[in-house]
């Protein structure tokens, strides 16, 4: 492992040390060219078939892409997606903490919740949420099994929108809870122990030490779930909630006898939102990966200037900096094992 790292050119070493790199003819790879051409031709055929087929009615697609009902549908879809994800994340953290609790009641309730909401179809759950005002016509606040103080008509409180939002959120929370649990479990117990030894309270340890590091594991699948939720919102017709993009476009499609172009309109909007979400996901993952990604980065940006000049203790700051970048170069080569504690000697 280490000898291999020595053989590769050191990117971070002093430039005067750099030897003349080897000049060798590459291995001929005709297969690469052939496969690339084949795939490009196939892709061109697919694109051509899409653009030139008059049945897709691209002019209609373009017309309705900016239709006011469609854009409003996009808005409702976004509200449902982010609203339900926000509720679900809070619930999921709660469920995951309950799952790790010492209290057996907390543990079992969390387990049963996840079991039920993962074990039944989201469509069925949404239908039930739509029927809640039939099943429970009255809601009341009061002492459990005792007197009631406030009584509501369920239909007034849980409208179709709230039924859809809660239905999506409660289902999603079960999946996210498992993701959060895996994330919390991925943090080295030594982290919590070190914080405990410093006298921090358990709630602080969770919030300041464990959760931020768990986010590195939690963020990528949560981004995935958000993108998945974007499409799952199309199921709220089961409630029925009829303002989001899929229902809005299919309604127009039925009315104008042009279902295909309107399906494409919805698909394009989903694609666009997904693309934006992917950009956001990249930045969120980068933020929570701080201090962990590769180790091949320098000190935090905009910092590290003030100390390096004056106070250099023994060997001088310059020598140390050279040493660090050499480490970084070795790690960057990707030939060593990914252990932040390992100091690699070339």
């Amino acid at each position: 492992m280490t000898s291999h790292a020595t053989d590769t050119p050191r990117a971070g070493a002093r430039s005067s040390d750099l030897p003349e790199p080897l000049h060798a003819r590459p291995v001929p790879r005709p297969g690469r060219w052939v496969s690339a051409v084949v795939v490009l031709v196939l892709a061109a055929m697919v694109l051509h078939a899409l653009v030139t087929n008059p049945n897709f009615r691209w002019d209609t697609v373009w017309l309705y892409l900016r239709d006011v009902n469609v854009v409003r549908g996009v808005g409702w879809t976004l509200v449902l997606t982010f609203g339900s994800m926000a509720i679900a994340v809070v619930l999921a953290v709660l469920l995951a903490i309950m799952r790790r609790s010492d209290n057996p009641v907390m543990r079992s309730v969390s387990w049963a919740y996840i079991w039920f909401f993962r074990g039944t179809p989201i469509y069925t759950q949404l239908v039930f949420w739509g029927l809640i005002s039939v099943l429970y016509p009255r809601l009341s606040l009061g002492v459990p099994f005792g007197p009631e103080f406030f009584v509501f008509d369920t239909r007034d409180v849980i409208t179709a929108f709230w039924a859809a939002l809660l239905g999506l959120a409660l289902n999603e929370a079960a999946y996210l809870a498992e993701i959060v649990r895996a994330g919390l479990g991925s943090v080295d117990p030594g982290q919590a122990e070190a914080a405990r030894a410093l006298g921090m309270k358990e709630s602080r340890i969770l919030r300041r030490i464990v959760l931020p590091q768990a986010m590195r594991v939690i963020a990528p699948p949560t981004g995935n779930e958000t993108i998945s939720m974007l499409k799952t919102t199309s199921l709220v017709v089961a409630v029925p909630f009829t303002l989001e993009i899929t229902y809005a476009t299919s309604a127009i499609g039925t009315r104008t006898f042009q279902p295909i172009p309107l399906l494409i309109v919805a698909a394009l909007w989903y694609l666009l939102i997904t693309s934006v979400l992917m950009v956001g996901q990249y930045y969120i993952e980068r933020y929570y990966g701080r201090g962990f990604d590769g180790g091949a980065t320098g000190p935090r940006r905009g910092a590290g200037r003030k100390g390096s000049g004056g106070t250099g203790s023994t060997g001088g700051a310059g020598r140390r900096a050279g040493r660090l970048s050499r480490q970084a170069a070795i790690r960057g080569a990707g030939t060593t094992k990914d252990d932040p504690f390992a100091e690699v000697t070339p």
């Binding site: 201090g291 180790g295 320098g298």
Partner: peptide, 19 residues
Amino acid sequence: LERVGLADRADHYPAQLSG
């Protein structure tokens, strides 16, 4: 950090420091 001789490493993450 200055007392332990690491004033110039204040803004480094643990993964960027030697053992």
